[in-house]
Design a protein around this nucleic acid. Structure first.
Lengths: 351, 351
DNA sequence: TTGTACGCGTTATCAT
DNA sequence: ATGATAACGCGTACAA
């Protein structure tokens, strides 16, 4: 198996390596005939430039990286699709890197930046409680997308941040449930860690109840199993089952992610409870699936399209030196669907 | 922003670069004290080895690549998870590469192999109608997983192939629907291309109908919109709507992928049709979601766990020279759930 | 327009 | 146990 290098191609064509390089990289100052001849032999011999060697020399690759923590999360696949399209429009290539559960996203980012000489990074998911020193090491611009928690102690002009205010929007969802006369609202929450998106949404839940003078019943706050993957349907299913077995009364169930809600809907169904007649069910995220299940899921839709587009655009602008780092908060949209309804037991079961 | 290289570390420590290299790569012949000193300064200065340079020199990286076509497809995320675990067990690192819709998977594979010096490749999804010449260019072992179609003209010992017999299993699903007395069975099929998984499953549908002496009505064969992503819920939804608008009568609907089926279920629901009372609905793949939706989906479950595990194991064995290439066909499992039932109109509507 | 020669950061080989 | 040095494959300044 002969693996030709640029030298081989040069030798075969009877030209210098730089001429071959020029042919490959579309440099202007090259004789069209020479170029064609070279391109032909390249095809003939199946020459493929070695990217590692390229990256070693190149000072600047027209590329960005997207680091995703939890590629399983259906919410991200929507984002990735859009980012991909935007990159293509700008003739940037996109390196998609998957960060495993235990890994530190900033460490990975550093490695990737060194390896490929890319111009920017988008972080999707994960916690963002990194030390300022560490973030400074990343000497390309980066944007945190869908990042609920911005550590206050880190200087804002170090990076950009795009997302919704998880705490506030979560409260809005609970406000809505309360407006339907629900008082005993159970919540399914993932990620016990501080600073996590899950915890922020839980805070919003508490905020709303407090604001409406409804006592918070800790027994209605259901932490999902931390050993399973957060935001999975399985986790939603099992946690809801546990809640039902506990015998706690509730008229509405709010899951902090649509995937959890879908798992919950099955658990409710198996317990003979109808949605929304017996229990109102609400999710968060607004993933595609939420629209298609029956009954369709009331949820807090994050503007995926806009967020992904603006994230990419902002990053490109920062790379081009056209903009400073920004911290943008989007409005989520309350999508009222079939899974929620006025509390049938209001006045009877309410305390 | 100072980016130290191995030389800098060497200079700072007052040693040669090779000693630093030895420290990094856990080589045996190095003084423990020297090693510790080097490792400390590495940490202090935040040195990160450049992977491109490493790949350039290294002859052999303990790594494999997984090339996924259509990372959106929820069926694959299950596979990836398992492959990742298996790699970790074997202390292999796994490079996940996403292949875009228009790209040629073998071309990408060649690039990746050159760039990283990896030992093997797993292909997930995509068509596999590649020329033998091209496949030969890949001089590392590779395994096609979940590949329904094996071009007969390519010598079998060039690669491995793991998957289910899509045509046969698809026929089994239709057999089952027929056993429920359904005669007018509509099918939702994606990917018009030859050799594609979608077409194979369609063939199975035809096989079954023929075997049972049921006339094939081309109007019940619904090709999804090729401009949307195959196997998406949206595509299933829209195609089903079109089918309903056409006024064609049918008592069962078989979607060649669960995601399509979920979209279909919503379209049926909106048309006031109940599943399974009015229409029986069946999918294919056995993704996690199928279990959680209401009604749960009758589907043909591919043994994801086993397939992924065996794929990885086989690849490692081939790399180690312990095995030859193999072509393994798994049995899919018919999961009978709530979405299918005996045809209520049998004898009335049947021709 | 084209070719030569150097360097990118690392690992491996060979001395020491 | 350690250090000098030659590759790895490519891009590019510079010379021609």
């Amino acid at each position: 198996m002969f693996e030709p290098t640029i030298k081989d191609i040069a030798r075969i064509c009877g030209v210098g390596v730089s001429t071959v390089s020029r042919a490959i990289n579309n440099h202007p100052d090259i004789n069209p005939e020479t170029k064609e001849k070279i391109l032909n032999t390249i095809k003939e011999y199946g020459y493929i430039p070695n990217n590692s060697a390229r990256n070693l020399k190149r000072s600047d690759a027209k590329a960005i990286a997207v680091l995703v923590k939890g590629i399983t999360n259906p919410f991200f696949t929507g984002m990735i699709k859009v980012i991909e399209q935007e990159c293509k429009r700008k003739h940037y290539s996109m390196e998609l890197t998957h960060i495993e559960a235990g890994e530190d996203e900033v460490d990975v980012a550093q490695k990737v930046v060194k390896e490929k000489r890319l111009r920017g990074i988008i972080f999707l998911g994960g916690l963002f409680s990194h030390s300022e020193a560490k973030l400074k090491k990343l000497n390309v611009p980066f944007v945190f997308s869908t990042a609920g928690s911005i550590p206050e102690n880190i200087s804002k002009n170090l990076y950009s941040n795009i997302g919704v205010d998880d705490r506030r929007e979560s409260a809005r969802m609970v406000d809505y449930l309360i407006s339907l006369k629900h008082k005993r609202i159970a919540i399914l929450v993932a990620e016990a860690q501080e600073e996590s998106i899950g915890q922020l949404r839980l805070e919003g839940y508490r905020d709303s109840l407090r604001a409406h003078g409804i006592a918070i019943d800790e027994k209605l706050i259901c932490q999902t199993d931390d050993r399973l993957s957060h935001f999975s349907m399985e986790n939603g299913y099992l946690t809801t089952k546990k809640l039902l077995e506990s015998g706690e009364k509730f008229t509405a169930l709010y899951a902090v992610a649509d995937a959890l809600a879908i798992g919950a809907s099955r658990a409710l169904h198996e317990a003979g409870l109808r949605v929304p007649q017996d229990i109102s069910l609400a999710g968060y995220d607004g993933i595609e699936m939420a629209n298609y299940i029956v009954p369709s899921l009331t949820t807090m839709r994050q503007p995926v399209e806009d967020m992904a587009k603006d994230t990419t655009k902002l990053l490109f602008d920062i790379i081009a030196g056209k903009k400073e780092h920004q911290h943008i908060t989007y409005q989520a949209e309350l999508l009222i669907k079939e899974s929620t309804d006025v509390c049938r037991e209001c006045g009877i079961d309410g305390d």
